[in-house]
Amino acid sequence: MPQIDDIDKKIINGIQAHFPIEPRPFRAIARDLDLDEAQVIARVKQLKEEGIIRRIGGNFSPDKLGFHSTLCAASVPEDKIDLFTKTVNSYPGVTHNYTRSHTYNIWFTFIAQSVDIIKNNLEEISKTTGVSGILNLPATDVFKISAKFKV
């Protein structure tokens, strides 16, 4: 893990949730943290190069854009994991996919413009891979979404 110092930590904690929407956002961040703009820009570039910051941008709620999202799980036999992964990952609406420690061993999220598209795609995945019984678990209530971590 690359070394990050206290200034890096301050910057990271400062820009996770509310990146300024104004003409010179890095100057605004610098002012809040008592740093200068060029220094903040140089450090953020470095943090991105090192892969500590994956991206800076907006995260959108699918439902507010008229999209539907769901969590899916499948119980995939060892010898079909590669085919199943390749098939599932080929859908642009699949944004996250992990193997997990359970007989339902593959878990992925699916975003699409309608619930029917998701349903049809899951049927298509089952047909292509021979893996049936894929769980389709759309959220009915959201109690928390936060991707902010103190570093």
Partner: peptide
């Protein structure tokens, strides 16, 4: 900027900022 602010105020932008690679941040 005006459009982006409008999207932010209506909470169409859920979160705007840096996404970390968790593994690398500890």
């Amino acid at each position: 900027l005006k459009t982006a602010k409008g999207l932010d105020e209506r909470a169409i932008i859920r979160r705007f900022g840096a996404t970390l690679k968790h593994q690398k941040s500890g």
